[in-house]
Design a protein around this nucleic acid. Sequence first.
DNA 1: CTATTAAGTTGCAATACGCAACCTATACGG
DNA 2: CCGTATAGGTTGCGTATTGCAACTTAATAG
Lengths: 159, 159
Amino acid sequence: MNRAHQLREVFAECGISAALECVGERWSFLILRGAFNGLRHFEEFQSNLGIARNILSNRLGRLVEHGILQRDPDPADRRKVTYRLTDKGRDLLPVLLSLRQWGERWVSGHPSNPVLVDRYSRRPIAPITVRSAEGRPLSLGEMEWVDRNEIDAADVDAA
Amino acid sequence: MNRAHQLREVFAECGISAALECVGERWSFLILRGAFNGLRHFEEFQSNLGIARNILSNRLGRLVEHGILQRDPDPADRRKVTYRLTDKGRDLLPVLLSLRQWGERWVSGHPSNPVLVDRYSRRPIAPITVRSAEGRPLSLGEMEWVDRNEIDAADVDAA
DNA sequence: CTATTAAGTTGCAATACGCAACCTATACGG
DNA sequence: CCGTATAGGTTGCGTATTGCAACTTAATAG
């Protein structure tokens, strides 16, 4: 197995490809942002995001299939359906926030609204950073890519 | 201005929309992953990622337009062109890593290769988390969305 | 019992994506 | 020099995805 073949396998089974299978489509992140901001119903997503109804329908269905949203008919009003984040969906928050912070810093140039704050201190959350196992923020120069076979197995699975 | 209108504006000028304008297309994240892993040349991206040549050409061009990659002809061999990450591009690392960690945890089920380690301790980086301004990891229940006008301006811009 | 709301579906046009073949400008070997 | 290989694309063409507007179906509200 040559180097090129190895790398191709590496990319195919990469966590990023896997994640993009679920949330890589155009509107997925914006729908998720809506969900994190409290949107629950089809019409709310549609009117707030301005997304086409057929696309929204398709995306909600796909997010449900992937276990990122859960779809519950409202027992009190049987026309209504509630979409809410599962644990798997809630765990996408760091992705959403790091993407948002990058967009604010490098594209739009200003913080957007609403702001996510620490409930107790009322201060906005910190910029999301890469940290060492001990919690020290790392710059790119302090990191290195290594083959996982060269690392202690317990460490790899922890990461 | 009613609530619906307000929210729509909020979404339109959101940092996430802004970010997705630059990196929201199908292959962008995988190309960036390649760049972080040391890919530099057109043929390297093409053969390692298995992406169609015209799409790759288009994506590289767009990433260069957005200032995420920089394109330099090689003076030693004028057939060759080098694509490398700019500061703006390098700053996408937290997005890539959080996406990857999510994919490994919830989809593929295992860490992928290669692994990013702290150069000195040789241990893999920590999972990316949301933290308070003081650096304390926060769970979703400890956070709250608030309108930015209700927050001290210095704090907002820091975030 | 009529009007309205919620959550979709359908038909059709515009865009983006993907594959294979082709092209252009170097560089390399003899 | 001169044929051949390499790097980085472009072109043509078919398929898949996206987007808009109109329509549907079921349930509730007045």
